[in-house]
Design a binder for these strands. Structure first.
Lengths: 339, 339
DNA sequence: CTGTTAGCGCCTTCAA
DNA sequence: TTGAAGGCGCTAACAG
């Protein structure tokens, strides 16, 4: 194997290219600038491009960032990496950014506001051009502060208290309305709502959709049907248990999200109850969840794309020193499918 | 809402702090340097730290990187984001990096060598201090070239042809050996091996483990039992179909990985065959896969941590201008569990 | 222990 | 159209 770390492969600089081409560094800079508005002869541009290629010249990103005060980087902060929903959103964002020459910096906040603050702080130090955040919690003063410091910010999935920021969200209310409706159409009348931390806007909106569907059907939820608390697998398990052990066991239940759904299935698989589930969020595994009847599928990648597009708009606005045109909230529809 | 983008909140520079503290920028730099070896009076350090805090000073990362020729960033390239296995590895890496003040830059190669090359190129331009790569394909000349250019590289999950690089891998052979063994202990003798692209080192090693287990049990695989081809859900579905329609249907099958496992389950759920599965890789959903009997669980987060540790070692070696001490391959054990 | 100085590599007026 | 020169913010000699 070749000796590593020994060849001082000092990166070629713009100066090397300039010397080789017999021009000044300024000309090289202009020739290689993606901005075609720079005036350089086509001939010299071609020549310089070729020489740069031969030399294997690559612009130093740190230097360029320092000068331009822009890193062409957007930070994306998600609660956790091991979660298909978040990663699908991230993929959507990445695609949009990549198309525009931007790079995504992905970080996880580990479902903790404290970690979220730390991550954001680190990222801000790296002078990212903007941030897309899927908030870990319902408090958002630090996000508003970030924005006030001049960093373009876009929220995804949920909105938070204490921050009036642009956001890309699902139509959670409508989605859960349709999901509950689907069960009603199948003849189920006794339907529970399981899981949900009401400090999360998503949970509140979904609960609202559920309530509206029942109300329209003239059904009043019996005590114990609305069984809130938590958004994770463990919570789903416990809440399902609560429902089963409650006074009036329902025939069906809607799950506030995929993790809760999973926990519910776990619990249901332990006792034969006949309870059927309709859940929010899809995954490759939903076909194997025995109690699952319907799924409300969010347009995850689409949300990511919209968020990517929006953050780039804000970045551009800022660059052009334009005033912030006002908060914009984008809602994407949710689709009901059979798993 | 406060007017955004209007306050020219020009970031405070080290100069601002220096002025406010009545010292030189050099002293500020030293005082704020994480490196305690810098000689500064404790008194001035405290004073400067306080003033920096008050002013909300944050070191400019681009400037620091330019000067230090180090970005304190490690790039991690995975085939895709929407994959728990990769994300668990990524999380392990991130933890290790974070503990050491490094930041992870996560990028997806979309299961394509071309994309992988592009991503790596972009990342290299950003002068990351090192890269951890989960290769998308079996060819690795570009990875070797990257390393030869002086960028520390560590591979995870699989090794590639054309590159002699450090790697952190699972004991795939032993894992699949134990997995097959588990089925044998249950009395199954007719066991198929389903899925697997033999250009991938993981698939080869797992096939080898399967073969050894059968051989030790004195069993010769019948034609059609070893049903290779592909590593995805779709492949698992097709290969399982091939097995079922083959001449000698087995009683059980091992799956080369989780996606194939999933596809196999899909196919099995369509026809009652009684075939039982033992699969590589775990997930929160494996308990719901009806045919699944055993799982070979890799220490994903552990692999990430080891990879993180190793890449930082290489970075340190390079920084100290030490010669590359030689390739190191780390193998982590695989655990057999019941889902 | 602290200040002075000289860049790191690039971009961008200002001149020519 | 091109070149010269200054500086983005920070750090690392080298002095003092």
């Amino acid at each position: 194997m070749s000796a590593r770390f020994t060849v001082k492969n000092m990166g070629k600089t713009i100066f090397d290219v300039a010397v080789a081409a017999g021009v000044s560094t300024a000309t090289v800079s202009r020739a290689l600038s993606r901005d075609r508005s720079e005036r350089v002869t086509e001939k010299t541009r071609v020549k310089i491009t070729k020489i740069a290629e031969q030399l294997g010249y690559r612009a130093n990103h740190a230097a360029r960032s320092l000068k331009r005060q822009s890193t062409m980087t957007i930070a994306v902060v998600v609660p956790e990496l091991i979660n298909d929903f978040f990663m699908e959103v991230a993929e959507g964002i990445e695609r949009e950014l990549d198309q525009n020459g931007y790079t995504m910096l992905l970080a996880a906040s580990l479902n903790s506001v404290e970690e979220e603050k730390k991550r954001i702080s680190t990222l801000e130090d790296r002078t990212v051009d903007g941030m897309v955040v899927i908030p870990s919690a319902s408090m958002g003063e630090h996000l508003q502060a970030l924005s006030d410091r001049g960093v373009p910010v876009v929220l995804v999935d949920r909105i938070v208290e204490g921050a009036e920021l642009d956001a890309v969200l699902s139509d959670n209310e409508g989605g859960m309305f349709k999901l509950t409706k689907a069960l009603l159409s199948d003849g189920f009348r006794r339907i529970a709502f399981v899981g949900g931390d009401l400090t999360a806007s998503t949970a509140r909106e979904r609960l609202s959709g559920y309530a509206r569907a029942l109300a329209e059907a003239g059904i009043t939820p019996e005590p114990g049907w609305v069984c809130l608390g938590g958004m994770n697998v463990e919570d789903g398990y416990r809440r399902m248990e609560d429902v089963l052990k409650g006074g009036s066991v329902p025939e069906a239940a809607v799950a506030v999200n995929l993790l809760v759904h999973l926990g519910m299935e776990r619990r249901l698989s332990e006792t034969a109850s006949g309870v059927v589930i309709a859940g929010f969020d899809e995954s490759g595994y939903t076909p194997f969840l025995p109690a699952c009847r319907y799924i409300a599928a969010q347009d995850t990648v689409g949300m990511g794309k919209r968020a990517g597009k929006r953050i780039l708009e804000l970045v551009a606005e800022k660059k052009n020193n334009r005033t912030y045109a006002g908060r914009r909230i984008i809602r994407l529809p949710v689709t009901i499918i059979r798993p």
